[in-house]
Design a protein around this nucleic acid. Structure first.
Lengths: 148, 148
DNA sequence: CCTTGACTTAGAGCTTACTCTAACAAATAT
DNA sequence: ATATTTGTTAGAGTAAGCTCTAAGTCAAGG
């Protein structure tokens, strides 16, 4: 009844599913990259419980990080929290928040495009170099090339 | 007469042309990422002189670095130096060197392919998120969505 | 019962990759 | 003449992003 599909994950499970260590997950939480998760109530030591939506969000955030977004920018992205509060009240200044988030995503998408371009360049160069070496390997008549 | 096209660059010029600081260029040289460049002889303080081939090599190496190859792996790639010595003598065990370099390039190209894939994933997710926010911005009737 | 995994705060330590300073020398450009 | 750029060695400092330990508590599962 609490999570969708009744699937709730502990921090250890999230760690296994995402490949992010529990240290790092708590660190990200403390740094404001991840929202404070729901906690088990009562005596149960306040254990973090993540649902599927949380998991997808963590993976999204991790993707941003892996592709070069700075932790500080991710924290900016996340800082205003959920777009609607518990009671389905809009947060204050939602327009500004949306603008800010769109801007951060724009900035990152630009970075991604540059990275794609560079990746393709480097790929080409690396392949050329590789071919060159392969040719050298197979050639009997080694011509005098002074090169790397 | 010394360099091709008579173009020789000082470390400062290389820095400007590549966007790598002189500190970093010397650091890379010390770490074995860059071969020891030709030096001006005689009284002239042994100033480093790079030619076009050197410049291209530096850019190639920098591309590897920028796309995630570890400095240590780059150093491995570079460590056996030029493929033919000054006197056009083959270096010892050139086959092994070629194999090693091809292997390092293979490894890196694999990494590049993974990166390309992830970049595209993240691009898609970021674009979706951006669209979602844009829709929220333009919608008058804000539906109760509790989400990031 | 005992291991495992969860929690906390605080803080130390680590890796990678620079980045810069010191302190001195020598050559070039204005 | 002076500022800039280059050179050297050696070493300190910085930043990001973890990674782990300590030292204590709590609760579930075999």
């Amino acid at each position: 009844m609490k999570g969708d599909k009744n699937l709730m994950y502990s921090i250890g499970e999230v760690s296994k599913l995402t490949g992010i260590s529990t240290y790092t997950l708590r660190y990200y939480e403390k740094m404001g990259l991840l929202p404070n998760p729901y906690r088990m109530d009562g005596k149960q030591n306040g254990i973090r419980q993540y649902n599927d939506q949380d998991l997808r969000f963590i993976q999204f955030i991790y993707g941003l990080k892996q592709t070069g977004m700075k932790l500080k920018d991710i924290a900016l992205f996340v800082e205003d929290g959920c777009l609607l509060t518990q009671n389905n009240q809009e947060i204050d200044g939602i327009q500004d928040v949306l603008h800010k988030r769109i801007e951060l995503l724009n900035k990152h998408v630009n970075l991604l495009e540059q990275q794609l371009e560079q990746l393709e360049n480097v790929m080409t160069l690396a392949n050329e170099k590789r071919s060159f070496y392969s040719v050298m390997l197979n050639e009997q008549t080694s011509k005098p090339v002074k090169t790397f």
